[in-house]
Simulated scan of single mutants.
Amino acid sequence: MTPHVAVLIVAAGSGTRLGAGVPKAFARFAGATVLEHAVRGAFGVGRLVVVAPPESIDEARAIVEPIDPEAVVVGGGASRQASVAAGLAVLEPGIRIVLVHDAARALTPRQQLEAVASAVAETGAGVIPALPVSDTIKLVDGQTVLDTVDRSRLAAVQTPQGFPREPLDRAYAGATAEYTDDAALFAAAGGIVVTVEGSPLAFKITTAADLARAEQEAGDAVGATIRTGVGMDVHAYDAAEPLWLGGLYWPDEVGLSGHSDGDAMSHAICDALLSAAGLGDIGGKFGTDDPRFAGAHGDVFIRETVALVQGAGFEVGNVAVQLIANGPRLGARRVELEAHLSSLVGAPVSVSATTSDGLGFTGKGEGVAVIATALVTA
């Protein structure tokens, strides 16, 4: 999670045109609610704030908290603009970039949220994802065609729409009219807005036909994607430290140096999982400059990584790990080690070990290396 980014998910609409008999956020497709799909797609990008119908806050929390216990759920207002303002009001001071996202665009790829956040950081402008208009567009008066509009200068915009925090707050504080989207409000206050490429999957669920399309799109993806990832970590021995490896304590063994507990096996597993899900690496998610992870055990990193992978829409198939070192010897604790790691990952984990026949730093007994591979499905 990027600590200075917030994703504000607007889910307070009534969904009258959808005709589902419930607020749009609680309509279901592909085995989950619209809100659950949207939250899973945004989880891990930044601090999550969900704006729900005031009368359905408890129901929204029941959906959101199992995915992200730290997410904030607040009640919305009478209009979309009022709902966004309610979400902005609860953001913590350290947030510098805000992504305003419609829950109704429930299948928006995670990469689109990350691209918008990156573009805001790079440009300092408002950023909106957009697609070119492919249909011929006519200007009409009732049923009479008045003119053909040049579509080369038109774009269909989506969410999330990203903005630097302070000018967005000022724009909302000074708004005297209702705007159709946040970019229009931001621009009316003098902000510059630029575009990035959108995605066909980021379509808005408005009607029953849209919900059926979402069911189809999600169904097409089930079991259709198998991805693998590789992770590797090395740590030097440190006689002054206890040994933690694979989330277990190894008494009477030489420990490993590191910013956390030096658990090279857990770290390699995290890198493999993040690699498989296309989420970067452990250094980008849990950097050594973050004091929260000083001395943290491998269990913490694995649990957080699995949550990120699942939040990106993937399930872990299995993980294989190989330790390259002169010690410790795994034989007596292999079953315990595999059971512990499997419980953390939520999928089978197999562990093996080898030496490097006296070659290199592992062969000379200077440290350990661990290689992990992971398989995930979406």
Rank of each mutant, 00 (worst) to 15 (best):
residue 79 S to N: 10
residue 98 V to C: 05
residue 128 I to E: 10
residue 342 S to D: 05
residue 152 S to D: 14
residue 187 A to V: 08
residue 285 K to A: 13
residue 210 D to A: 02
residue 220 D to T: 11
residue 342 S to G: 10
residue 310 Q to H: 15
residue 265 M to S: 09
residue 272 A to T: 06
residue 179 Y to N: 11
residue 86 A to M: 10
residue 146 L to M: 13
residue 125 A to W: 06
residue 275 S to A: 15
residue 37 H to C: 01
residue 71 A to H: 05
residue 62 A to W: 01
residue 365 G to P: 02
residue 200 P to D: 07
residue 344 L to M: 11
residue 304 E to L: 15
residue 126 G to Y: 06
residue 77 G to S: 08
residue 187 A to I: 03
residue 243 L to W: 07
residue 121 A to S: 14
residue 39 V to T: 11
residue 335 V to R: 13
residue 277 A to N: 08
residue 309 V to A: 03
residue 247 G to S: 10
residue 10 V to R: 13
residue 304 E to S: 13
residue 64 V to N: 00
residue 303 R to N: 02
residue 335 V to T: 12
residue 275 S to W: 01
residue 249 Y to G: 08
residue 223 G to A: 12
residue 226 I to Q: 14
residue 167 P to D: 07
residue 218 A to M: 03
residue 212 A to C: 01
residue 318 N to Q: 14
residue 211 L to N: 07
residue 375 L to Q: 15
residue 78 A to F: 10
residue 164 P to Y: 02
residue 111 Q to S: 15
residue 357 D to T: 07
residue 213 R to C: 02
residue 153 R to E: 12
residue 174 G to R: 15
residue 359 L to S: 08
residue 229 G to I: 03
residue 143 Q to L: 13
residue 138 K to R: 10
residue 286 F to N: 00
residue 341 L to P: 00
residue 89 A to E: 15
residue 372 A to Y: 01
residue 226 I to N: 04
residue 250 W to G: 03
residue 288 T to M: 02
residue 355 T to I: 04
residue 305 T to F: 02
residue 8 L to K: 10
residue 69 P to L: 06
residue 4 H to N: 15
residue 20 A to N: 03
residue 189 A to L: 02
residue 123 T to W: 04
residue 108 T to Y: 00
residue 297 H to N: 06
residue 83 S to E: 06
residue 114 E to I: 08
residue 302 I to C: 02
residue 137 I to A: 03
residue 142 G to W: 10
residue 51 V to F: 03
residue 42 A to V: 09
residue 85 A to C: 04
residue 121 A to M: 12
residue 159 T to M: 03
residue 182 D to K: 00
residue 353 A to L: 04
